[in-house]
Amino acid sequence: MAKVLFINNDGGGFAQYVEIQPKTTVEQFFKDQMGEVNPSDYLIKVNREPVAANQVLKDKDRITVVPVKIEGAR
């Protein structure tokens, strides 16, 4: 099993290690971690670079998710 670092900037922005099955794609990983949200509402990067949805994740990859819409305040 491969282990990747998942940084979810939706909400608290916490980082955690996640174990994944071999040949897990970015799209599958996103769905597993984020549930039924729309991927187009997020900027997804692997190892600090934009990626295609079907890219296969490998051990020690660093996946970052940043929401596109974030409401500021006053």
Binding site: I7, D10, G13, L43, T64, V66, I70, G72
Partner: peptide, 26 residues
């Protein structure tokens, strides 16, 4: 606003590109 915790956590972790991206999105 909603991005406060995520931005400051990014800065604490040294993830400056995430912090900038969050600010731009705000």
């Amino acid at each position: 606003g909603d991005g406060k915790t995520a931005v400051w956590n990014s800065i604490k972790d040294g993830r400056f590109s995430d912090a900038f991206q969050l600010c731009v999105n705000i």
